[in-house]
Amino acid sequence: MKTINQLQDEIISEFALLEGDTEMTLFYIMELGEKLEPMKEADKTDDNLVKGCQSKVWLTARLENDRVWFSADSNTAITKGLVSLLVRIFNGQTPDDIIHADLYFISKIGMERFIGTQRSNGFAAMVKQIKLYALALKTKQEV
């Protein structure tokens, strides 16, 4: 099992091959999105929508053997690609590791456009939701 930072570094080196070309980077992100494990249609409810995203993002989480597993989808290809990167990094991690994770990969792959600006709210909101899920599952685990 790779750590969150090992996975981030793996993503950074994959994207380095695109040499900072914005269009190629977006194309690659969309390709990754297509490989995301399909989400159950029944889970695409308003309750599972991540608030604060310009596009629709559905996200659910469950605890299995003390590890958190995510399922996600989006109605836009780029956002789906971005959320697939998050799922790849966080799937199978412990709640604690997720809560304390420092996400540095997004600016390293030239996609800082999705952080801290109007569009980013999307990305920031997804990360926040992932951490909230981890916190909730950790609380449940301790009860």
Partner: peptide, 21 residues
């Protein structure tokens, strides 16, 4: 089959500013 958001982002990657939404 393609969301306007994706079209807008990809055009921006080519320096083209359009509005989507």
């Amino acid at each position: 089959g393609i969301h306007p958001f994706d079209v807008g982002q990809l055009l921006d990657a080519r320096g083209i500013a359009v509005r989507t939404g």
